[in-house]
Computed example of a mutant assay.
Amino acid sequence: MNSTIKESAESVERQVTRHFQAMLSARDFRADSAQQAAIEALAQWLGSWLRGRRTLLRVPAAGVYLWGGVGRGKSFVMDAFFSAIPLPAKRRVHFHAFLREVQVRLREISGQPDPLALVARQIAAQTRILCFDEFHVHDIGDAVLLGRILKMLVEHDVGLVMTSNYAPSGLCPNPLYRDRFKSAIALLEKRFNVLHVDGGEDYRQRPDIGQSWGHFRALRSTEDKDWLGRQSGLHAAAVQDVVIQVNHRPLRVRAHDAASAWLDFDELCRGPRSSADFLWLCQRFERLAIGVVPRLDGESIDVQQRFLNFIDIVYDSGIHLLLLGETHLDELLSDGAHTDFSRTHSRLQQLRITDELSGEA
């Protein structure tokens, strides 16, 4: 290997760590030891991956897997790392959006032999480093699809960096289809640098860091149901009580205009809606109003999972959310009811609670 390539890779490592420090300084933040270790691990991996030194006894790690509790700064670390990568062929994508993209590509080339392999080659031709946010698996279809395409992307030398709330061994807790994902877990544990990022503090709960991305109100009377309509920002000429087609399936909407939509929780989460449907809504509207969210402990796991997926997607899409709950925010779903609720609870806590007296947002 010539000295220029080696020096370039080493300078990339310094560039990543310097950029992280610059982002911290710009926000007047200080990294904890876990975050510092994470950015150093990412910088070292990137330098090694760019050098690409392979021997019979050693193959460079295929990527880095960062996991830890909610609000531990994983996304901030990913922000700094991604923006410092000196390659144009890089992508950062949320887990749900990536799955949706793969499914769309598969439909476009249906009838081809082994279409998933073709999709993997297409992605590899366009992307050298792919970064995933909020990696998790709770659906049998997702488990099968992700397991296969991860292996293919690694084989095509696409560098992969992921954040997750779960260690690889905890990614697919449902025993009904865990066996279908075991090979993917083994791949992550064997070929990736796995790092626990947990400094012990949920930074999203800090008043100087947490940001409101919408509003929440607890239902006090039947009259409060009109709060969504009043606060949704709907134009006076908004279409009322209409059925729209979302991914070729009907969805009843209480009202919508060009930028905002008001939907019932039952319509959104009790029927066979998918994450692709939630992504469609976020691409179509800038503001969503949802009510009335019941106490979720008494709901089926499918209803709970749809709501959690919905919150994930809306949060990461930058959509303004208005949420009307049957009860106070902390009482909607208990911590032990669903394995993913700690992440959802942290995100819901960033909604601005409306004034209990005036009811104004």
Rank of each mutant, 00 (worst) to 15 (best):
T354E: 14
Q112E: 11
I129E: 14
A259I: 04
A34R: 03
L188W: 15
R204V: 09
P168H: 11
L50S: 06
L322E: 04
A337C: 11
A361E: 15
S300E: 10
G233E: 12
E267M: 08
Y203F: 05
L263E: 04
F265S: 00
D330A: 11
E223F: 10
R287T: 06
A276Q: 11
L146Y: 04
S75Q: 01
G71L: 00
R27T: 06
L50F: 07
V16W: 11
R107F: 10
A22G: 08
L324K: 09
K190T: 12
F135E: 01
I209D: 09
A38C: 05
Q205R: 12
L66S: 01
L57Q: 13
L219G: 02
A238D: 13
H156V: 05
S358V: 07
P250T: 12
R217S: 03
L188N: 01
S274I: 07
G210V: 13
R27C: 08
A289P: 10
E108W: 07
P60S: 04
G52P: 00
I319W: 10
V161W: 10
F181P: 04
F81K: 03
R352F: 13
R30C: 08
V64E: 00
Q211M: 11
P88N: 06
P88E: 12
G233Q: 12
S300Q: 08
L106H: 09
R220A: 04
V253D: 00
R347V: 03
D297H: 10
D302W: 12
S300H: 11
R295Y: 13
I149R: 02
M23L: 11
R273G: 09
L308S: 04
N309K: 06
A167F: 08
V70H: 04
A97T: 14
V154P: 09
F310Q: 02
R204A: 03
L195R: 08
R254S: 01
L288I: 04
L357H: 14
H320E: 14
H138M: 11
L296R: 02
D330H: 06
P115G: 00
R295E: 13
M162F: 15
L50Y: 10
E101C: 06
T354V: 14
S346Y: 09
V293P: 00
F216M: 06
D316K: 06
T4N: 12
E201W: 15
R180D: 14
F29G: 04
R121H: 12
R252Y: 14
D277H: 10
M162V: 13
D142P: 01
I290N: 07
T327M: 07
G214T: 15
D241S: 08
R58N: 10
F132A: 07
G214I: 15
F265K: 00
V70C: 07
A184L: 07
Y65C: 01
T17E: 10
I149W: 07
T344D: 01
H345G: 01
D208Y: 09
H156L: 01
I301N: 08
A361N: 12
L57W: 14
M23V: 10
L332N: 02
L228Q: 02
L42T: 06
L324Q: 00
